[in-house]
């Protein structure tokens, strides 16, 4: 096999993958729409691509759709920033004071296994039915895993590199900033990628519990008035939002 052939084979493969991905999407939408048109499925329950499109357009024209999207994105970004900073900070402290980690370990495990949604009602009572509660729930949902991932990354830093710095009389701060954090750059970046998805989950959970606006609010409202078109539209919008946000983080982390 020549080099040229090899390259063209790779290119061909890539094209096949992309085309198949697009084909699946189109096929899914088309079948859904056809089944709806022929009344094989009940569009009252399943909605249809056409109805979803109309609903989204109406939301845009009459119900300030962009405002709802913005609210959700704002909540996600705020909780993402809080989670990320806080988890790096806490992981750093735990790494530097191992005794503290050992003491807190059972409580971290306990808190991690607790479904954070269960705390929702308490948080709403304590903080109030507002955006702060939603952000708090979102941070609680994403932070523990984030701390644990970063902490484990720190723990797995090459001991030889740390020893090397110690031979130059490095203190804890030197080791942290010159070795532990830089060598865990990829761990931190992949944690950020997970965080953005986790925060979206948290925000929607929060919006389901208490909200006056946002995509979660639209979905909840849609289900309460049994408007499945609205529910489906919300889900589609969420997919788009999460896909776009994930790719933005991916793009930033690659640079």
């Amino acid at each position: 096999m020549t080099y040229k052939k090899y390259i063209s084979k790779i290119k061909k493969n890539k094209i096949i993958i992309h085309l198949s991905q697009i084909a699946i999407f189109i096929l899914f939408i088309t079948i859904w729409q056809i089944l709806a048109n022929k009344n094989y499925i009940n569009t009252f329950i399943t909605s249809s691509p056409k109805n979803i499109l109309i609903t989204i357009l109406n939301l845009y024209r009459q119900n300030n759709l962009l405002f709802h999207i913005w609210i959700t994105i704002k909540e996600v970004l705020i909780s993402f920033i809080i989670t990320s900073f806080l988890s790096i900070f806490i992981a750093t402290i735990l790494y530097n004071y191992k005794i503290l980690y050992k003491i807190l370990d059972p409580y971290i495990t306990l808190f991690n296994s607790l479904p954070k949604v269960a705390l929702g009602p308490i948080i709403i009572i304590w903080i109030g039915a507002n955006i702060k509660s939603i952000i708090t729930i979102s941070v609680l949902i994403s932070i523990i895993v984030s701390i644990q991932t970063i902490y484990n990354g720190f723990e797995n830093t090459d001991p030889l590199k740390i020893k090397l710095l110690k031979t130059f009389n490095a203190n804890k701060k030197d080791i942290l900033f010159n070795c532990v954090i830089p060598s865990n750059k990829s761990v931190i970046l992949s944690t950020l990628k997970i965080n953005i998805s986790m925060c979206l989950i948290g925000v929607i959970t929060g919006e389901f519990l208490t909200s006056k606006a946002g995509i979660g609010y639209l979905i909840l409202y849609g289900s309460q008035v049994f408007n499945l078109n609205l529910v489906m539209s919300g889900i589609i919008l969420l997919m788009i939002i999460s896909y776009v946000m994930y790719n933005i983080i991916l793009y930033i982390s690659k640079r």
Partner: peptide, 21 residues
């Protein structure tokens, strides 16, 4: 092992000890 830091270039690796001390 050489324990060079992969995220630092050769010059930065060479002066690492000076920087730390």
């Amino acid at each position: 092992e050489d324990a060079l830091f992969p995220w630092l270039n050769i010059y930065e690796n060479s002066i690492l000890g000076l920087k730390i001390s």
